[in-house]
Design a protein around this nucleic acid. Sequence first.
DNA 1: CTTCTGACA
DNA 2: TGTCAGAA
Length: 118
Amino acid sequence: MAAYTSLKGIYPIGMVEEKTGLTSRQIRYYENMGLISPIRTQGKQRRYTEKDVIRLTRIKYLKDNGFDLKSIREKIELLEKSTKDLDLMINSGATQGRLTSLYPVSNRALLMKLLEKN
DNA sequence: CTTCTGACA
DNA sequence: TGTCAGAA
């Protein structure tokens, strides 16, 4: 029973199973399919970061809603790309003053939420 | 005890 | 996808 050593934000596959609701079998399978890339310890065990867990949670959500791995991979790709673009904009100071006119309506809500934190 | 890879009654 | 084996 749960004798994990998980501190510092990275978790072994067993804990990821509990956090995401996915089986270790599925998690490893998704890795082979290129949907996730956890780091490995010297003993070759997988270690998942908080971001990896979030990513897997999204994968499970899409999977539960009937999407095939191909569709899931595309959606995750788009989501992470837009998030990356947002960070770039925010950190480059491009949002000074005219935020609403610089970003598309579809992602404005997310952007505003991100800005509230800073 | 947990995780890893490979394989399939 | 589940599950079992054999090793780490």
